[in-house]
């Protein structure tokens, strides 16, 4: 029963491995970006679940409330979400350029074109 208290980490690990699998096993570049997105969300869930305190509420000051969640991970993840979207825009722009240069967004097709002169 002691070990069951870790279930939030296990959910995170399962989600993270799903994203990891998409990134390393799929051929399509857009799908890889989506996989990175899943991976990223799993890290967010990890941080937020660490900030939860049993019986606490959202960290907004109110005279009637004694126990609050930890506000610091919330701040870090707010920053990380926005940065994540900015870097994802950059990755998608790279995909668009690759499509222009090679006419495809499948990785093995790109490899084949690279090998023939």
């Amino acid at each position: 029963m002691n070990v069951l208290g870790l279930y939030n980490y296990w959910i995170v690990v399962v989600l993270m491995m799903t994203g990891f699998y998409v990134v390393i096993a799929q051929n399509n570049l857009i799908k890889k970006v989506v996989g990175l997105n899943i991976f990223q969300v799993s890290v967010f869930v990890f941080y937020i679940s660490m900030s939860k305190v049993k019986g606490g509420t959202a960290p907004i000051l109110d005279p009637g409330i004694q126990v609050y969640g930890n506000p610091l991970p919330h701040v870090l993840i707010l920053t990380a979400i926005v940065v994540g979207v900015a870097t994802m825009a950059l990755a998608l722009a790279l995909v668009v350029r690759i499509r222009h240069a090679y006419g495809t967004i499948e990785e093995d097709d790109i490899d084949a074109q690279e090998e023939e002169p």
Binding site: F44, I48, S49, S51, K52, V53, G56, T57, A58, P59, I60, G69, P73, H74, I77, L78, I81
Partner: peptide, 8 residues
């Protein structure tokens, strides 16, 4: 929301 992080 379930984990009290409404801003996030």
């Amino acid at each position: 929301v379930v984990m009290d992080a409404v801003d996030v």
